[in-house]
Amino acid sequence: MGKPRVGIYGLTSCAGDQLAILNCEDELIELASALDIRSWVMAQSKNDETSELEIAFVEGVIGTERDLETLQAVRDRAKVLIGIGTCAVWGGVAAMKNNLPRERMRELVYGEKAEHIDIRKALPLKAAVDVDYELPGCPVEKDQFLTLVGSLLHGDLPEFPQTPVCSECKMNENECLLVHRGEVCCGALTMAGCGARCPSLNIPCAGCHGPVEEAYYDANFRALQAHNLSKDDIIQKMGIFSSPAWMPKVLVTDDLPGKGGDYAETH
């Protein structure tokens, strides 16, 4: 098999996931020789936007009409479309206040003469297209990204443990910030993969990888509520990075988050 044709795209975002790839300094040259990188606007100036792609990596949220068009065009061209980073997977910080009227936000920031500014809500990729694989992280973890590319080169996809940050925190033998120090730590609700980076530095988890699918939400909410937090406070806290996973369904129906929420409602 020849080198797979690859495109790396950034929608509205901080470009952190693309930078995480550029930060694979030791592997970058090898990476570039294993892949046929057809398009990567952030890193190269000659880009091919017509040929079919075996793999497309997309970071960011759908924040503008242009983002949507780019995403749909990439979806049409790519055999495998992979969302990289918490924005692509859960909306990230840009989706934090999707419940506020966008026109109002625009007026507050740009004033009245700002018709040219798009007022589309910030949404994760799966709100608009089929996504074949998702790698959350804000930004994605370098090691996980390289493992993903390694698997793809073998025609496979990796299976990372679907466990909360707590599992990694325990492996690091950290003292629990929530139970022992009374700090509001989101580790129990958050997808692992970071090696419990923050709690290992005495910093509570902020939930930047988005929700873990199979958490024991009832018990974990109760543990957090014991620290004078309402359910809404907890959702607001987790919602900094993954609001569309928690809103509005959780608030309205008390359902717990999981993949494939009704994004039409938040749109």
Partner: peptide, 25 residues
């Protein structure tokens, strides 16, 4: 034509300790 993320609206209502991790993005 980068999409707008309205950071100054996002941080309003947040506790001051939550500001740096939000605006870092």
């Amino acid at each position: 034509y980068e999409g707008s993320r309205y950071y100054e609206v996002l941080v309003v209502g947040k506790h001051f300790t939550e500001v740096p991790p939000i605006v870092s993005r």
